[in-house]
Write a protein that binds this DNA or RNA. Sequence first.
DNA 1: CGGATTGTTGAGGATACTCAAGTTAGGTGG
DNA 2: CCACCTAACTTGAGTATCCTCAACAATCCG
Lengths: 236, 236
Amino acid sequence: MSTTIDRSVVRTIPLFERMTDAELDDVLSQAASRRHQAGTAVFEQGQSADHFFVLLHGRLRVTQVTAEGQQMVVRMVNPGDLFGIARALRRPDYPGTSTAVVESITLAWPMTAWDGMLEQHPALAVNAMQTVGARLQDAHARMRELSTEEVERRVAHTVLRLANQSGKKEAAGIRIDFPVSKQDIAEMAGTTLHTVSRILSAWEDAGLVEGGRQKLLIRDPHQLVLIGDGHVPGLL
Amino acid sequence: MSTTIDRSVVRTIPLFERMTDAELDDVLSQAASRRHQAGTAVFEQGQSADHFFVLLHGRLRVTQVTAEGQQMVVRMVNPGDLFGIARALRRPDYPGTSTAVVESITLAWPMTAWDGMLEQHPALAVNAMQTVGARLQDAHARMRELSTEEVERRVAHTVLRLANQSGKKEAAGIRIDFPVSKQDIAEMAGTTLHTVSRILSAWEDAGLVEGGRQKLLIRDPHQLVLIGDGHVPGLL
DNA sequence: CGGATTGTTGAGGATACTCAAGTTAGGTGG
DNA sequence: CCACCTAACTTGAGTATCCTCAACAATCCG
């Protein structure tokens, strides 16, 4: 499970970039690297939160399930992201499940190291706070959308968020280069896969996106922004 | 605008309770106390975030408006709460407007003091992080509700959240002892005041709550929990 | 090649919104 | 203290959006 850790890879992560070599070695000495196959969970909702993580490579989907079994995609975890920091939220357990959508590599620290690391590396504390802060703003944006916008606009915003946070620019547009199902998008936008399918079909006919089984390419982001902001009729 | 600050009042606030007298004096020396009349804003969305605050007395409503003018109530601020900490979110401006719903008293620090205070009083950093963490979990809960629940259940959860976070236990039930309009509740639950009115009327007929103009008393919280969790038909 | 997962598309209907008209409560000023 | 005015609330009717149900098609993987 555990392998040696490449310092140069870790250096590229914003969370660590301001650390001295000595600090970095100290921090990394307490971590273990783990490999996760596509479809497997790094941790599951309700489990005792005994580790926190940084994603080095790959892509994770964080979900929450309600008591009735309804699922929601909370967010995607991208390389460099800190996740599973239940301790920072004063929680003993993980509030959601994070699943690898492609083969992924994480760095894992025992949660017992959290307080010590924050104390000894203040930059990390600031960074952790801003991580949580960014998520909070994201959550507020989604709440606003769910409260005030109709489905097509919500889906537009969802797709644009995906593109911004996890997309990869190409000549033809912005590609989501890991599997995303219509169900996933539905669970991000607060709708059903049927509605997402219809909307994406319409957008595809208009040349705004290119779909496919768990595939997505955004051809015309600007037009999607217009739809998302309600400045254009919408195609449904 | 500025008055002397009573140390014994501040002592009761969790954020400061672990500080030594010397620390507290240092922190308070940089703060100014402000009075805000009901209906006035402590700060407004988009303003440069040059202060952060603790609410000493009263009650605030934090709102965000969309580009089209749709409003959402983000949360209520209760005495002891830290708010306006845009800096922690790495924002130069306030993401929302906070308005006093009753006459309120705040402690205000210049935002320039933020980094210094965090450095010199680590307990404050941990506390700030947990404050933001708690808000994040709250936001996730609301997202889940908006995504998966029908209106009546969302309103039930909204009312229960209000009761838990800002309610006051009485013989007859849990009282919200500051003005809350149906419009407010609607903007918390992601619906219209019409729908809220209908739902609360039905609940009132069933003896679950007692309404009134900007008044709310929760008579039977347990039954509302059942409605919120979908274990009971609902009254619409 | 066959099974399973994912996605498409149609029809019908329910939820909750919009529009509309009125009522009640509270504050203000004469 | 009463009349008035406004803001908050109530309630009804009609309807749009989007969900549910359903059946089928396409894609992937072993």
